[in-house]
């Protein structure tokens, strides 16, 4: 199993839509892969490109922004 690609994804979620949607997904018990680690922001407008770059530097395989 260890050679299976298990990406680590960093997500920036907008409090009003994507974070809310992620909560709703939970309420409905939708199942999705557990590879995402999230950071809540009040709006994706807050996401400075520098954050994305920093995420990759810190070893993220992918960055997700949802807003």
């Amino acid at each position: 199993m260890s050679d299976e690609f298990n990406p680590r994804v960093l997500g920036f979620l907008c409090n009003w839509c994507c974070y809310a949607a992620a909560d709703a997904a939970g309420v409905s018990r939708f199942q999705y892969p557990p590879n995402l680690r999230t950071i809540r922001v009040m709006c994706t407008g807050r996401v400075d490109p520098a954050f994305v770059v920093r995420g990759f530097i810190e070893g993220a395989d992918g960055i997700f922004t949802g807003g």
Partner: peptide, 14 residues
């Protein structure tokens, strides 16, 4: 930290 709506509820099998 949201470990219910965005964790235990959505990764019930893992």
């Amino acid at each position: 930290v949201n470990i219910r709506d965005q964790c235990s509820w959505v990764h019930a099998g893992e």
